[in-house]
Design a protein around this nucleic acid. Structure first.
Lengths: 188, 188
DNA sequence: TTAATTCTGGAATAAACAGTCAAGAAAGGA
DNA sequence: TCCTTTCTTGACTGTTTATTCCAGAATTAA
């Protein structure tokens, strides 16, 4: 069995993610994808099916990576509240690049069940991990106890979306830092 | 000079807004627009130029109306903090329908200066009005004074975006109400 | 009524688009 | 070496798109 150059599927997906997060699904043409992914048109169709399947795979890969990064940051500090701070801090520092999750939510809402299912999986993972750390931080006396961990987790996740929309809308780095600070202040 | 049925330009624009906020610019075809606006294709091009100009006009009209509504709600209560609460409450209750402002930010970011300019105008108006009420509420002793009115205004606006993204992503009414409560709690 | 004007709807156009096809280049296994 | 497989390339197809054109219907002023 002869194996060829056989481009890296994950690298190609990462390139597709880069295009989709900047231009959305409808704003992206297959030509843009082929050029960015540096593969032949036929390889794209052979490997990923069609544009929609590729988009779904891109969103899935992005969600998994982003969720994993959030959770790693969340757990990366011994003190739970510091992990929460770090998660928000990471969002602020990375906010120049558009978020494919937010983009796909805004573009499609709940109209595609494939996307909704993907989001639910990733969202639940993140929320569960966040709740666990929030409960810990509450037990440490570092954040408010007059709201449930679930409420606080949802608030943090919505806060992240708010920061990312603000960034996409042109907010300065200082504005974003201020938003991060306010979001954290809110749960203290 | 003979004047005909002469469809209402604003009604037509409102219909276009309805389509654009649900499907975005790229996801909307001129056929969808013509059908929703209930005007002839030629009338659309005669009256609005082309699809992009129509989109810009739709975003402008939407932004003006939405900003006006925010400010009216903000000022609709004698106590400043109640106006702020009411503004967030209105967002929560109206969040089933996609926001064209958030949609256009996510779809185009800062890549179209026409849109960026529109947004800046509307955003500044809202921020200024919010700051004025925030300062009042601070003077009343109803909200925190350890953050500037500008910071709090930005936080509220980002919070609104976060609530709207959450809603678009399928959050329940109760979740949204909880987000509103948390956002308000944050500035108290 | 008649004339002027405005909207409509379908047809035409030209570009962009997603997706397919087929010939060949590259690369490794036999 | 030759064969098999995989990737590339460019051309091709058929559809969808935005936009324009045009003929006629509707509407109102004179």
């Amino acid at each position: 069995m002869a194996r060829n150059k056989e481009f890296d599927r994950d690298d190609a997906l990462d390139a597709a993610i880069g295009v989709f997060r900047e231009h959305g699904f409808e704003g992206t043409s297959t030509d843009m994808l082929v050029r960015a992914m540096k593969i032949g048109r036929q390889s794209l169709y052979d490997t990923f099916g069609d544009k929609w399947k590729l988009y779904c795979l891109a969103v899935e890969r992005y969600s998994i990576a982003e969720t994993r990064a959030h959770i790693a940051t969340l757990r990366g500090e011994p003190r739970a509240v510091d992990g929460i701070r770090a998660m928000i801090g990471r969002v602020v520092e990375d906010a120049q690049r558009a978020c494919l999750g937010v983009g796909s939510i805004c573009e499609f809402g709940e109209s595609r069940q494939e996307l909704s299912a993907l989001r639910q999986t990733a969202g639940l993972q993140l929320k569960t991990a966040a709740e666990e750390r929030i409960r810990k931080a509450q037990a440490d006396g570092d954040i408010a106890v007059d709201a449930t961990a679930g409420e606080i987790a949802n608030f943090l996740i919505a806060g992240i979306a708010g920061i990312r929309v603000a960034a996409r809308g042109g907010a300065s780095r200082d504005d974003l830092r201020s938003l991060g600070r306010m979001t954290l202040r809110a749960i203290a």
